[in-house]
Amino acid sequence: MAHRILFVCTGNTCRSPLAEGLLSLLAEQQGLSVEVKSAGVAAIEGCSMSAHSASILREKGYKGSITSKPLDGNLVGWADLILTMTVNHKRAVIQQFPDSVDKTYALKEYAENDSHILEAVREHEALSAELQLKQALGRQIGTSERARLLELVDRLPDYDIADPFGGSRSSYEISAAEIERSLRKLLDRLSSQG
């Protein structure tokens, strides 16, 4: 069975098309069955991919063409996995499509494979939920709990991929390299899942 992966950014002209094209190429090279699409939380239907994103993909051997699509319920329903370019995109997807919460992640977050970071993320999420519940119940949050939360926040990586929109070719190359590193980790994870 092919994995159906949807990449999401803002306008669907720079980062998410790069991710779509790169994953298609990398999966094909590894013989992995994936279906890939991309969309934007603020995209306009049918816009061309940015010239720099398109040229980077062509140089890597991508033959397809990608035009922008706004995120909608059909795309969300189609996807097994929704990977966003930033944590804010993840929030926007989940806010608009609450049923997608269990399949929506920031790309770098989902691809993370450092066990120490993953443990810090789990502890941070659990402690955050516990403290929010305490606050909602009107209970005091202790100094040690606040200190531990701040310590965990300091250990968490930045899961955002910078938007190169309007930038130089080198800014697009930096984003493409960052996306590709995460996609290689993603493919390792998908391969191990079978």
Rank of each mutant, 00 (worst) to 15 (best):
L23P: 14
G77Y: 00
K90V: 05
S16M: 01
P98R: 11
S171L: 00
F165V: 01
C9H: 13
Q95D: 15
Y105D: 08
A136W: 00
V101Q: 14
A43W: 01
Q132E: 15
L152P: 13
N88V: 05
L71G: 06
E35S: 12
A129D: 11
G21W: 06
G11E: 07
G40W: 10
S128Y: 06
Q140N: 12
R148F: 00
N12A: 07
V34E: 06
D160V: 00
F165Y: 15
G194Q: 14
A162Y: 09
V87Q: 09
C14K: 10
L18G: 10
G46N: 12
A129C: 01
A120L: 09
G46P: 06
V87S: 10
P70I: 05
Y110M: 00
E178P: 00
S16Y: 05
D160W: 03
A111H: 04
Y172D: 01
V76G: 09
F165H: 15
G167T: 02
G46T: 01
H52Y: 05
E123P: 04
L71A: 03
L149E: 02
Y105W: 13
C14F: 03
G31T: 02
L75T: 07
T13R: 12
T67L: 05
S115A: 09
S175V: 04
A2K: 15
A129V: 00
G166K: 09
Y110K: 05
S55G: 02
